[in-house]
Structure formats: structure tokens, C-alpha cells
Amino acid sequence: MALPLPLLGLLSLSLFLIPTTSATSGIRLGIIRKPFSPIDPPVFREAPAFRNGRVCGSQPMDRIHIAMTLDANYLRGTMAAVFSILQHSTCPENFEFHFLWVRYEPDVLASIKSTFPYLHFNVFRFDSNRVRGKISKSIRQALDQPLNYARIYLADILPPHVKRIIYLDSDLVVVDDIGKLWEVDLEGKVLAAPEYCHANFTKYFTNLFWSDRNLSSTFDGRKPCYFNTGVMVVDIEKWRQGGYTQKVEEWMAVQKQRRIYHLGSLPPFLLVLGGNIKAVDHRWNQHGLGGDNLEGKCRSLHPGPISLLHWSGKGKPWLRLDSRKPCVVDHLWAPYDLYRSSTHSLE
């Protein structure tokens, strides 16, 4: 019998207890048989058990920590992401997943347990009140959800034994051993991510921002480049010591008063860390596959090797596949879809 996990972070002890593993005694959990809706998550097939290779250690130092948000609307994407990570990993038993949600959703929790009976995971509550008054309306409603801002508070929510984390969005799949990304040398930086210096950095901020030297001077002495916050390696200790949560919040307060950007939680990250991160290979975030944030039109793959496919933007592969109007790249996501009613993988 798995021991109950002490609820850490912002979770009330009176709310519920969650085991660190979904099954350790060989007992298979029952399947939740409910149709999909925002409040009734879909039924998923059980994933196979993945075992460590001979080179894998079994000490706490060998643990790889992954953080993701969790809610019913994106659960299908989360399942595919987790499945892809485990399938391509050399040491799948060394993963410890840290899921962040806004509220206790028993069906969502049951779906994870029944789909991944051997998964080591914790679930923490993110208190949406922390950002409720700080969020400014953006160009897409999904970007305004409080859970979209949870990545800012990882250092406050995660337990002390987590020193480093890979943060991942739910609309991606990994097609390489993510242990390679975990081992990146941060070289003293607080964050590592692929940088895209060819992108027009100015478009992420309004004319008001660039015309006000008190604001735009924040980039003086830096050569800021765009990076996507859906794939990040974060030194949690350095983040905490440097007070980066407060720094991001300060820019969110400016945005609330003066409207200096248009896109959710991304721009304040750029304001604080743009030009001061450890750049990793672009193969670790083939982003933008969901199209732009307004129409979500189809996009093709960027040239070069690929380790991670990311459907950032409005279009999500599971919705386009179900509508029978998929983009070509959506068929690269389909093999990782564990939703029981899916037929696209057979077509």
C-alpha cells in the first residue's frame, strides 16, 4: 500500500491525500467510464509499464523532476505528453512528476492513476488567488487562465528536495530521451530554454513600452531573444534565492496599469530573463505547431533535428483530429493519444 503524500506547497491538509505512486502492490485501478466533457475527463487506455535500462541509478540524485499543469480541458494532451516522455526515456522509473492544479478533481486524478499505474507523481494545488488581480486580458482567452501563470510559482509550491525542474506545457510530445535535456549545464543561469534570436523581439511588447525609456531600459546591457516558456529547465534554488517570482510579478503589475504587452505569462518572463538564460538546442522545442494565437492555422515543421514537438498556439492536435480536419503535423501527435474513443490512429 502506498503511503499518503504529505500535501505540500499551497494545498490544505484538510482537503485530501494523494499517494506518491499510483500503485505499488500490483493492484490495477478501475477505469472511469464517463464521456468526455470539461468536468468529466475522457477514458484513457492503460499505458504499458516502462522499465529502467542497466545504466540507470536508483539514488535520489538520479531522480528527474518534471512539472506540468493539470486540468480536465487539457488532460488528453497531458496524458500524451507523459506517455511520450516515458516511452523514449532510458530511465523511465527515475521520473517524478509534479502536477499543479487549481482545484481537486477526483476524476482527473483517477484517470492518471488508471492510465499510469506505476507513475511516481505528486499533485499540488495552485492558489489562483495569487494571480487573480494580476492577470491582464490577452489576445486569447486560454492565456488568461490562472493556471497558465502557475509556472511563475514553482519555487513556492514544490518541496525543498526538488532542486531542479523541467517545466513542460501539456500540448507537446517528446520524441527523444528527455534525460539529455535534464543534464544541460546551466552555467550559473537560473533557466535554460531554446532561444530564437531571429524572431522579431519587439513585437512581444507594445509601442508604449518601447517609447518609454523608463520601461525599455530594462534591456540595456542585454541582447534579449525570444524563448518559449512551455519548455524550461529551471534551477529552483537560484530562482528562489534571486526572488524571481517577485520580479515577474512586478512587471505584471506594470502591465495591469499600462498595457505594455499582449500575451499572457510569456512577456514578463522575457522582461526578467530575456538575454540572460542558458540557450539549448532548438530541437528541444519545435514550437508553434498550433498556429498563431488567433486562428491556429496549420504550420509545417521547422528544418533540423527534432526532440520535442510543441503545439503552442490556438490549434490543438486532439481537437483538430476529432474534427477530422487535422493538420499534417497532428499525425505526429496521434500515436501518443491514449484516449479510448480515438479512431484516428487506425485510419
Rank of each mutant, 00 (worst) to 15 (best):
A2M: 02
P4L: 04
P6Q: 14
L7R: 07
L13Y: 00
L13H: 05
L17K: 10
I18T: 12
P19Y: 00
T20F: 01
T20C: 00
T21S: 10
A23M: 02
I32M: 13
R33Q: 13
F36W: 13
R45T: 12
F50T: 03
F50L: 14
R51E: 15
V55N: 10
Q59P: 00
M61Q: 14
I64K: 09
M68G: 01
N73I: 12
N73D: 14
L75P: 01
M79N: 00
A80E: 02
L86N: 01
Q87S: 15
Q87G: 08
T90R: 14
E93N: 08
L100I: 11
R103Y: 13
Y104K: 13
P106K: 11
I112T: 01
K113I: 10
D127C: 06
D127G: 05
D127N: 15
N129H: 15
N129A: 15
G133I: 05
G133D: 13
I135M: 07
S136I: 08
R140C: 09
Q141S: 15
D144F: 04
Q145G: 06
I152H: 01
L154M: 01
L154A: 01
L154H: 02
I157C: 02
V162I: 04
Y167T: 04
D169N: 10
S170R: 02
V174L: 01
V175P: 05
I178P: 03
V184M: 11
V184G: 07
D185G: 02
E187T: 05
E187C: 07
K189W: 01
P194C: 03
P194K: 02
Y204T: 06
N207R: 12
N207E: 14
S211Q: 13
R213L: 14
T218F: 06
C225R: 00
G230S: 07
M232R: 06
V234Q: 05
E237G: 06
W239P: 00
R240I: 00
R240G: 00
R240N: 04
Y244G: 03
T245N: 03
Q246Y: 08
V254H: 06
Q255Y: 05
R258Q: 14
H262L: 15
G264T: 01
S265H: 04
L270Q: 03
V272D: 02
L273Q: 03
A279D: 13
R283D: 09
N285Y: 04
L289T: 02
E295W: 06
C298M: 08
L301M: 13
I306N: 05
L308P: 04
S312G: 04
G313M: 07
K314E: 11
K314M: 11
K316C: 09
P317V: 07
L319C: 07
L321F: 08
D322C: 09
S323Q: 14
R324H: 12
R324C: 11
R324V: 08
K325A: 14
C327H: 04
V329Q: 10
H331Q: 12
W333P: 02
L338H: 02
Y339T: 13
R340E: 15
S341E: 09
H344I: 09
